[in-house]
């Protein structure tokens, strides 16, 4: 038995990793059976994930080793924010100034949520916490930021007549955009809210599962997971709101006119 070699602590090992590839094989078999044409993507995604995780693991080993300054962890966080902003720009090319807006939103959310988390003493400030927690913030905020940006542009474009009717009544651009920005924000945040509501009932989240597999007591794993979930909730709300408000502002001129908007094809 390959898995018997992994023992009870959740340690997987190289053989265990190879064995787990049988699940990728299952996904590939389903793709072949249903003629989805996704075999290449599944294999490429799996190989890429292994390479990326190994690279991250090696880098983490360096960052976590004693005598390495904490500054290196913060540089890593900065790199994550930059990379996420570039990802958002590529995923939402129709958003004017997407990279800069994403940098602002993700930078602010990361700074604010980590300041609260470390400032309130929920987690200690060290290399073991800074990079993984910032990773949680940036990774989970990415989709919400794209959704918020796309919805703001979509709402203001689809409801241009209503927005201009509000402007024509003498509303400021901020007031005229508010109902549509609000709708965009609700859409961007609802997935995370639903996910928070379903936690424990429908699924066991990654951090908690990982800790339990690593041999931590379930109650300790739960406490860490709860703090991480609230961190993600706060981060998603902050990034989506910053993105929506700054983008909406950019879509109006200084004299309160709605600019011409290009919709996503």
């Amino acid at each position: 038995m390959i898995l018997a070699a992994s023992g009870t602590s959740g340690y997987v090992g190289w053989l265990g990793l190879l064995a787990s590839l049988s699940l990728v094989g299952l996904a590939v078999a389903i793709s072949l059976w249903q003629q989805l044409g996704l075999e290449g993507s599944l294999l490429w995604a799996s190989v890429r994930a292994i390479v990326q995780l190994l690279a991250v693991g090696a880098l983490l080993a360096v960052v976590l080793s004693p005598h390495v300054p904490l500054l290196l962890s913060w540089l890593w966080v900065g790199f994550m924010v930059l990379f996420a902003a570039e990802t958002i720009r590529r995923r939402a090319p129709e958003i004017p100034g997407a990279r800069r807006l994403a940098l602002t939103s993700l930078g602010l959310a990361t700074a604010l949520t980590l300041a609260l988390l470390f400032g309130l003493g929920i987690f200690p400030v060290d290399a073991r916490t800074v990079v993984p927690l910032a990773g949680m913030v940036v990774g989970n905020s990415l989709t919400a930021t794209v959704v918020a940006a796309r919805r703001v542009v979509g709402e203001l474009s689809d409801k241009r007549a209503e927005v201009e009717a509000r402007l024509a009544l003498g509303h400021s651009s901020h007031d005229a955009a508010r109902p549509y920005v609000r709708d965009a924000l609700r859409t961007a945040m609802i997935t995370q809210i639903e996910s928070t509501k379903a936690v424990g009932l429908v699924f066991l989240p990654g951090a908690m599962t990982g800790l339990i597999l690593a041999g931590e007591k379930p109650i300790d794993a739960v406490l860490v997971q709860a703090a991480v979930m609230f961190l993600i909730l706060g981060a998603v709300a902050t990034t989506a709101t910053t993105m929506a408000l700054t983008l909406a502002r950019r879509l109006f001129t200084a004299d309160h006119r709605l600019v011409r908007l290009a919709r996503r094809a």
């Binding site: 007549a161 209503e162 201009e164 024509a168 509303h171 400021s172 109902p179 309160h256």
Partner: peptide
């Protein structure tokens, strides 16, 4: 422009009523 638009009102090609009741629209 905000003061000007209160003095120069506009009615558009298609009725652009906001979500809600007529009262909500007038209150806007």
């Amino acid at each position: 422009p905000l003061g000007l638009r209160k003095r120069v009102g506009m009615v558009f090609q298609r009725p652009a009523l906001f979500a809600g009741t007529v009262r909500d629209n007038l209150a806007a």
